[in-house]
């Protein structure tokens, strides 16, 4: 199966590979995996006080489509508010990267990763708020 040019570009020049400090209160971490293929994807966001994602990093061990999907996801969410980022759908990733049907689950994984990073950040914020009010 041939990869699209956009997938190859993200695979060969992945954007935003790396790690953010997961203990940082402003950092949300999403760790997701696909049991049927053995892929693992970590996506992290750093959110500023205005709720804007000022940085995003990923690390993916998986096929080219999984790497491209997470690379694209970090590119898209940077500069967005967490509410906006939460609306990104896997179908947009499929369209942008021209993923074939057998690789759609890679885009689902990327959408899940964004959502779990946001959920992790929100849980941290809620815990901090609870602590401040206590």
């Amino acid at each position: 199966m041939a990869y699209s040019e956009k997938v190859i570009d993200h695979y060969e020049n992945p954007r935003n590979v790396g790690t953010l400090d997961k203990e940082d209160a402003n950092v949300g971490t999403g760790l997701v995996g696909a049991p049927a293929c053995g892929d693992v994807m970590r996506l992290q966001i750093r959110v500023n006080d205005n709720g804007i994602i000022e940085d995003a990093k990923f690390k993916t061990f998986g096929c080219g489509s999984a790497i491209a999907s997470s690379s694209l996801a970090t590119e898209w969410i940077k500069g967005k508010s967490i509410d906006e980022a939460a609306t990104i759908k896997n179908t947009q990733i499929v369209e942008e990267l021209n993923l074939p049907p057998v690789k759609i689950h890679c885009s689902v994984l990327a959408e899940d990763a964004i959502k779990s990073a946001i959920a992790d950040f929100r849980a941290k914020q809620a815990a901090r708020l609870a602590l401040e009010q206590a």
Binding site: L31, V32, A36, G38, V40, K59, F61, V108
Partner: peptide
């Protein structure tokens, strides 16, 4: 049935372990 979307999500422990070992 087996395959993507039909199986439970991997546990966070397994994912952390696999991410570490792959790194």
């Amino acid at each position: 049935p087996v395959g993507e979307t039909l199986e439970p999500r991997p546990s966070q422990d397994l994912l952390i372990e696999m991410l570490d070992v792959r790194e």
